[in-house]
Design a binder for these strands. Structure first.
Lengths: 197, 197
DNA sequence: TATCTTTTGAGAGTCTACTCTCAAAAGCAT
DNA sequence: ATGCTTTTGAGAGTAGACTCTCAAAAGATA
């Protein structure tokens, strides 16, 4: 009854990964809209219909739900830690848990998502889902109702600051994104002071 | 040489407005994706090709650039006012300058944009444009470079808080959006305190 | 009214994501 | 090897956004 995946399963996983890899490469090289599913199929050496068997829509080739690990990390931060600091810590923990390869891949994918409007659209459910979950968790931590405006504002500000860092990073890939993210959250935590010269 | 618009021009404007009005109605009633351009044409009693003559894409039926008035309002706030407060004041000024009808219409359109992923995508250029402009103006006000991380964080937080209010409002249209927006910015201005029970 | 210009409708045509069907191929179990 | 199940490829088909063309309609001009 040992069920280590059989050849069939392994092959499926391989095909799936290959299709996605080729798709991302083509998207990067010629743009998302300019790449047809047919081209992807050809690059991955499968039939177009096979592509759709693995990914229901073209957009699904890019979208990944990266959130669960973050929530886990957040849940491990002791509840007396205030919200923004908790998010900061969870963020760090998550990033440190990734291998450099994983980190590079996920950042890569994020660039695509932030850069291509269609993808940003397709992932919006994801993003609002993240915001909602984050809000619920933070509310729970603080012993407040989920619809508390204060919690909503904190969550919004966190998301906004993160998007700010991302976009900066998209425009300048040399930036150390994790470090900037941490610094930005620290700044937010301090109440966003802007000392005048 | 007086050129008050002739009949032709007036008719064009009317047709354009009618098409857009019918489109928005249909989008509201049956959803964006479920509404075909053919239906819009039929509702507006024009040929489908006419719809495309007025609006290059289906998305263009919804998208409007609402930002310039806000920038103007912001520029009128004296430079010694700190950024978040300045935004707050500009926001208020802008809202108060609208007629109730205009206000209702623009809020209506915003719901659509926030609700329908395709539209959110189509307007993303607009949104990032807003963020960029806002960032530049705030940087100028504070006498800092446009790429200052502190300014980026403030801008991001402002945008994030605003989106938070919008989404709350989408889920509960009875909310007094302008009031909530103002309160949220005030909260942000105060450094997002969350006193524990 | 007669002529010139602009706008419109009709409709055929393109492109591409996505669906469906069915038979061939490939892994699987005995 | 033999039959059973799953996966695949081939290919035809649909839908809907968007394009193009051309002749008819309508506004402008004199």
């Amino acid at each position: 009854m040992s069920d280590r995946p059989g050849l069939r399963e392994r092959k499926k996983a391989k095909t799936r990964a290959l299709i996605q890899k080729e798709a991302l490469r083509l998207f990067r090289e010629q743009g998302y809209a300019a790449t047809t599913v047919e081209q992807i199929a050809e690059a991955a050496e499968v039939a177009p219909s096979t592509v759709f068997r693995y990914f229901a829509t073209k957009e699904d080739l890019v979208i990944v739900d990266q959130f669960p690990p973050f929530v886990e990390a957040l849940d491990q931060v002791p509840p007396e830690v205030p919200p923004i600091r908790a998010v900061r810590m969870a963020m760090r923990a998550m990033i440190e848990a990734q291998t450099p390869q994983e980190r590079a891949d996920s950042l890569d994918r994020e660039v695509l998502m932030l850069t291509v409007p269609e993808l940003w659209a397709a992932s919006i459910d994801n993003v609002t889902g993240v915001a909602t979950t984050l809000r619920e968790r933070l509310a729970a931590r603080e012993g407040r109702p989920a619809d508390d405006p204060g919690i909503r504002n904190v969550t919004g500000a966190i998301m906004g600051v993160m998007v700010g860092v991302w976009t900066d990073w998209v425009n300048n890939r040399d930036l150390d994104a994790p470090a900037h993210l941490d610094a930005a959250l620290a700044h937010l935590e301090a109440g966003l002071p802007l000392p005048r010269p």
